[in-house]
């Protein structure tokens, strides 16, 4: 049986890497005594599939993992059992059984929304800068990919961008960034502003799939049923 879970990454634990989080989950399922299925072969590993990597240091309200179980489990009890076995800050908030053959998290997620606290900037200055970015016809950046320098126009991946609330350290920026075919990272977004913006804090607020043209949580019934037309494109 397969289960998709949503969990948070808040507080000090946000300084762990994506790889660390995978390791923490492996420990947690063993400590909770949950019958996870294992891969065959020389190194037997628990069958855990994580979604898009979260940059080290960012918080998140919406991380996802798909777990395959060796036998039936009570899905409703999983969030409490796993939260107990995970470190503080990693809390499982929802769990839904998914049929075999459902697209992986990497495939199903189309965009992520981010809340970015931009350092030392007023809402007015930030607002003008956002306007500039949104009106640009293209935004070409060079980035490293598999050791090669690649030029990409990232403008199509900026789905939404607006000024958020004012805080002591700066002003909030709310962004929805595309993840297909490759995720646009908040730091890459901040790099296209002139002058470049610096984030005091970054939090992933949600990950979204598109069902019938509408944004949905990857745990939503439409996203987890096998025959749904998951992709809008």
């Amino acid at each position: 049986m397969r289960v998709r879970l949503r969990f948070t990454k808040l507080g000090k634990i946000r300084f762990t890497s994506h790889r660390d989080v995978a390791r923490l989950w492996e420990h947690a399922v063993r400590r909770a005594g949950i019958p996870v299925a294992h891969t065959e072969g020389f190194t037997r590993r628990p069958k855990l599939s994580f979604g898009l990597a979260l940059p080290t240091g960012s918080e998140s309200l919406a991380e996802y993992v798909d777990i395959e179980f060796a036998r039936e489990v009570e899905v409703d009890r999983l969030p409490a059992r796993l939260s107990e076995a995970l470190p503080q800050g990693l809390d499982v908030e929802a769990a839904v059984e998914i049929p075999r053959g459902v697209e992986s998290l990497q495939q199903v997620v189309q965009s992520c929304s981010w809340s970015i606290l931009v350092e030392s900037i007023t809402p007015a200055v930030l607002g003008a800068a956002v306007e500039q970015v949104l009106t640009a016809a293209e935004l070409v950046v060079t980035r490293e990919r598999k050791g090669k320098r690649v030029c990409d126009d990232i403008r199509p991946q900026i789905i939404d961008l607006e000024v958020g609330e004012v805080a002591d350290e700066g002003t909030g920026l709310l962004a929805e960034l595309g993840t297909q075919p490759r995720s646009l990272r908040p730091t890459e977004l901040l790099g296209v502003f002139t002058p470049m913006l610096r984030a005091a804090r970054t939090r992933r607020e949600g990950q979204w799939t598109i069902i019938d043209g509408a944004r949905q949580d990857p745990l939503a019934p439409g996203a987890t049923s096998k025959h749904a037309e998951v992709r809008a494109s």
Binding site: K12, I13, F15, T16, S17, D20, H27, T56, G57, P87, Q88, G89, A200
Partner: peptide, 18 residues
């Protein structure tokens, strides 16, 4: 906390061990 965003392997400094 603000310094940890700028260093390698910040998880070295947060404790949180079981």
């Amino acid at each position: 906390e603000p310094l940890l965003g700028e260093v390698q392997k910040p998880a070295r400094y947060i404790g949180c061990e079981d």
